[in-house]
Design a binder for these strands. Structure first.
Length: 150
DNA sequence: GCCAACGTTGGC
DNA sequence: GCCAACGTTGGC
């Protein structure tokens, strides 16, 4: 189970709801890429997190609809995500993300930090910049309940 | 291989 | 807008 960050100004949970599914292009961090390559599987559940938002927090649920495959934008000189140093033998990767649900009420970063049941959750650690993060199943279930208002 | 400089992320 | 944290780059 995962948490994936997006700035709602560039791609929000509403955009994903509209599109149904989307290629998660532009990941240019090796740790994040290796997680996608080595551990992420089609069908995995995802918390969709809004970063650089007011307030930041988990905005909804998604699912990995397609496992990691090479990210063509890294090879495209006309694309904003172009990486001139990218080599085909060691490509950047992308997954496909499918919409599951938008939370009726966003679970803010403040709530995540204050909740006693979420100790150790990566996104609430200082300086946790990784855009793709593993989430423990019990943390996932808890955040899901908070977001769905159960 | 070290490490200072620099760029990016992202909360506040 | 500020700035701490972190990753990357490049000189040596």
């Amino acid at each position: 189970m995962w948490l994936m960050k997006s700035e709602p100004g560039s791609y929000s949970i509403d955009d994903l709801a509209r599109d149904g599914r989307t290629h998660w292009e532009g990941v240019r961090n090796y740790q994040a890429r290796n997680l996608m390559r080595d551990q992420m599987q089609a069908g995995d559940a995802v918390l969709f997190y809004h970063s650089n938002a007011q307030p930041p927090g988990v905005a909804g649920l998604a699912r990995i609809s397609q496992a990691a495959q090479p990210d063509p934008t890294a090879q495209d000189p006309n694309h904003a995500y172009y990486d001139p140093k990218a080599i085909p033998q060691n490509p950047w990767l992308m997954v496909e993300l499918g919409f599951v649900a938008k939370f009726p009420c966003l679970v803010s970063l403040r709530e995540l930090k204050d909740h006693p049941g979420l100790t150790g959750l990566m996104v609430i650690q200082r300086g946790a910049r990784l855009s793709v993060q593993p989430v423990a199943p019990e943390h996932f279930r808890l955040i899901e309940q908070l977001g769905l208002g159960d």
